[in-house]
Design a protein around this nucleic acid. Structure first.
Lengths: 229, 229
DNA sequence: TTCCGTTGTCACTAAACCGTCACCCTACTG
DNA sequence: CAGTAGGGTGACGGTTTAGTGACAACGGAA
């Protein structure tokens, strides 16, 4: 789900963290010290950095400051791992811009929760504006679809599919494009699966009096069109 | 941008907060204790109060209760500053009416984010006004819920949950959002726990003749809706 | 202290949903 | 007009997600 750089010198804790991350669907990058961390950061930017306070050589706080100073890495959120106690250094240290901190010892659950919270805070939420085409109305906020007032019941996938069509109307989308945009680019499903969902979506729409809203373009894909032909 | 009253006795933290506020375009009013705070509040109402949990003399929670008790200051949102680990105080505090919590030590970035969130959240709703939907009435001031006159008995959590739903009706809320808004951002609770409380809330409502008020949106979360389907 | 209310979590059940296939139909090709 | 490829369609496990009852931990009240 998210790439997370774990900067931690103690192997057992490193291991514990990595296992926790994997189990919660994340992708840990390991670094035992600041130098390794910086090298890894050259290659690719992670979605989050878990940073031990005490590190051999360059300390965690130095690394944090450095990350904040660099334009490229400035946006990457940081969670600090600190030992219990030592309050005042925390305050000054967190001033450098860590987004959260976890005191050792910590429970895997707590760690997971904090990571989730920080990541959630980080990412902007999707477009929530209602869309309306030809009397058909879809509202992401309320997760409702109505056809001239009458409710249309859709499954989650059909909902996303319709949302995509309505925000990209009049254009032909190949099955591959639809899989990318509606299912997500990483999943592997048969292209024909799209057909089935199109079918289900059509069924739901026709039940509400919207015929031929979604048209087939033979050899290319599908299209949502308001103008009848 | 916004006037913010900072009630904090520790000078270094007071300083840190004030600097942060100024930097994020706000206007800090400083008070080292509850008495000073009250005096400042006489003069003018701030847009938000940042309140330390532990204060010399009158404690933060006392002050919060007092602010909530006074008609004039009731609408002003409060963010509490608490020491880490004091989970219980969060719950008590939420009942007194704090809008959010920040645990010390905190990062300026986090504080800024919370303030922004609370100010944004505050705008559309007056938290303390009674809400009524479809014959169901909830009064935050008296902490009472009635369904067409008949009393509905709810636990504290179910009450907050229902309150949130009623002040954000028709919208779909994910379990994570509900945990954020009803439980508080930094409480570590399984997402499925929401389900259980939804169930309890539904049970109580159905006992009072309100069926299907809270709807499940599969894959997304829950929604309070007056319009049946 | 004991009792009671509340809460978070779990295990289990029920239901919805998804992806896939097989088969059929249609439209284009020569 | 037959052949072929692409699309429509119904059905069927398997998986995911939500509903539900039970239970232990906890704090506050008695």
């Amino acid at each position: 789900m998210a790439r997370i750089l774990v900067v931690e010198d103690e192997p057992s804790i490193q291991e514990l963290i990595s296992v926790t991350l994997t189990r919660t669907g994340h992708d840990p990058l390991r670094a035992p010290d600041a130098e390794t961390a910086l090298r890894l950061l050259q290659a690719e930017l992670p979605d989050l950095v878990l940073l031990d306070w005490m590190l051999p050589g360059q300390s965690g706080i130095d690394l944090a400051r450095r990350l904040r100073g660099d334009e490229r890495t400035r946006g990457v959120p940081i969670i600090m791992l600190t030992a219990r106690g030592d309050e005042q250094s925390k305050v000054t240290g967190l001033e450098t811009g860590a987004d959260d901190y976890v005191t050792k010892p910590f429970s895997p659950r707590e760690l997971a929760a904090r990571i989730k919270a920080v990541l959630r805070r980080q990412k902007p939420q999707a477009t929530e504006d209602p869309v309306e085409i030809d009397g058909l109305r879809l509202d992401p906020a309320t997760h409702r679809v109505t056809a001239r007032g009458a409710a249309v019941v859709l499954g989650p996938t059909e909902f996303r599919l319709l949302h995509f069509f309505m925000t990209h109307a009049e254009r032909v989308h190949s099955r591959a494009q639809l899989l990318d945009s509606v299912w997500g680019d990483h999943v592997f499903v048969e292209e024909r699966t799209v057909d089935v969902h199109i079918r289900r979506l059509r069924g739901a729409l026709e039940a509400s009096g919207h015929d031929a809203l979604i048209q087939t373009v033979r050899g290319s894909g599908y299209r949502l069109s308001c103008q009848k032909e």
